[in-house]
């Protein structure tokens, strides 16, 4: 990551929603991540994937309780990490009673 020297920041989060990082949360994550200029990586143990690629995020198979590191590099890296962390910690705004 050559741009890391610009501004790089990361934070560890835990997936809290019961079904893990499945399609809808991954969609929410990528939608938010794509709004930032910075490069976004999502890291699970030693595996790092593009945070703006929904397919790559799905291949992580992050289930409930998985620890992930969100790393952003670029001009809006700090904001990106804060926003994305918040999204994950709030359980991706998933509605509990979604079958209504």
């Amino acid at each position: 990551m050559k741009s890391m020297s610009e501004q790089s920041t990361s934070k560890e989060v835990v997936i809290t929603n019961p079904q893990g990082l499945h399609a809808r949360p991954a969609h929410a994550f990528v939608t938010l991540a794509s709004q930032f200029e910075s490069q976004i990586e999502v890291i699970k143990s030693d595996e790092s994937v593009n945070g703006k690629s929904i397919l790559s995020i799905l291949t992580l198979g992050a289930s409930q309780g998985t620890k992930l590191q969100i790393r952003a590099s670029g001009i809006d890296a700090a904001e990106a990490v804060i926003a994305l962390t918040e999204l994950v910690e709030q359980g991706f705004d998933e509605v509990e009673t979604e079958a209504s």
Partner: peptide, 21 residues
Amino acid sequence: IGPQYGAIFAAHLQMLSDPQL
């Protein structure tokens, strides 16, 4: 049947514009 069901298609749509893909 409600936007929460439509969301699954939104994910599919995102897959098709996935930069990595």
